[in-house]
Design a protein around this nucleic acid. Sequence first.
DNA 1: CGTGAGATTGACTATATTCAACCCTAGTGG
DNA 2: CCACTAGGGTTGAATATAGTCAATCTCACG
Lengths: 243, 243
Amino acid sequence: MKIPSLTKDRCADCPIRHRAVCAKCDDDEMAMLESMKEYRTFKAGETIYWRGEPLKYVASIVSGVATLSKSMQDGRTQMVGLMLPSDFIGWPGRTTVDFDVIATDSVTLCCFHRQRFEELLENTPHIAQRLMELALDELDAARDWMVLLGRKTAREKISTFIEMLARRADHTTGNAPRLIDLHMTRDQISDYLGLTIETVSRQLNALKKDGIINFSDRHQVVVKDYAALHDESGDDADGGVVA
Amino acid sequence: MKIPSLTKDRCADCPIRHRAVCAKCDDDEMAMLESMKEYRTFKAGETIYWRGEPLKYVASIVSGVATLSKSMQDGRTQMVGLMLPSDFIGWPGRTTVDFDVIATDSVTLCCFHRQRFEELLENTPHIAQRLMELALDELDAARDWMVLLGRKTAREKISTFIEMLARRADHTTGNAPRLIDLHMTRDQISDYLGLTIETVSRQLNALKKDGIINFSDRHQVVVKDYAALHDESGDDADGGVVA
DNA sequence: CGTGAGATTGACTATATTCAACCCTAGTGG
DNA sequence: CCACTAGGGTTGAATATAGTCAATCTCACG
């Protein structure tokens, strides 16, 4: 991890205060975390962690988007996670990560020295509990993605992807935004969905031709018909796969 | 969860004592768990949990194999986890599971009433810690599987699957067994690998024709050449995908 | 010995990939 | 100000891999 800029903001004003690892903390616990934290920023395209690199810091994403990706020897790459604000990077007890962590946008992290964070955890069950919840949320998300990768068609994959972004874009309000930022190039999308870049392009344009979405620019999608988009996703009414 | 047979065995003799959720427990903690536990058994094919069913018990697998699977409306099914002895089913804080849990073999579970287990956790950091490790191990496994589902060829999928079974079959000794039990029908394997049953059959027989494996019966595979099997898996020397 | 579930094999097909050409747009420099 | 460039994106044609459909086989079990 490189040594980018460093600032001190107030946790009370933090945009991810109620969703991040600190969500359940009381005032004392917040004070502990506040004294430990360091902000770091990364520019689009910078690598936050290389696979296998010592995990010196763990961190919450404050703003921006990062991806977790694994590559095979011959270059085939599969993205195994999309990290949005409030998501946690690195885990206590782990000394490395087994994938590359790359800033897609410009990213701001709220970092904690890993070993000090682990020590803090011993006496701070609120944080340990929240961390467990975050880990389980990621596990659920990973399993939903396994269904997508193993069983969905290209059109279903693209539809699910856009719908997921809409859902996560602002899950505080609950009403999905019309304009969605893809955050990624076609190349990155293809690595996330287990497709080629050409197939991603074709399917996006097919959805556009069918009047379900539109583009304002290459990375901004306008969802014209949420119901239709959902019908194309292969998921049931609740947004998950059916039992 | 149905109410099958019930026995009381000594934790000290338990085959999964040092790998399960109780691995880090001291004598007092073991005594607590021992007083709470109930064994339950399921026959091959029985459903341990239906998706969405209230999670009354959490459990360690003592023996046998269970699968976690998700299905889409039209019947397409993706297995999202393979649970072997010492793996943990259900998590504290979760009131349901989002997939079906099905006994593949005959399965013995060491069950704990979920709410009582959650209460116990409050004062038993050794268990909470171990639970976190188990969750993170599953997350890592899920991410490796995402690479398989999204990027590997049918032949690579089959090879990886057999190699994974060999690795997990007896990771206490470390030396991979020659004879490997698939535990599953071709149908279940295809749901695990994101393939069709026909492709599974063809690829298994292709590996046999190439002298890499052999069958003693439909569910028992003899690995004749581990190096060749590994070369077909698409993974690097360490068994994971390369960075 | 007959039955049926699971497994195999073959022929054909469809979906997504591959390979290749071309387009768009923002940024650069003459 | 415009031409040039390069990276990202689109589109088309041909191909390959795995899927589909269907027939057949195997073997455990009644």
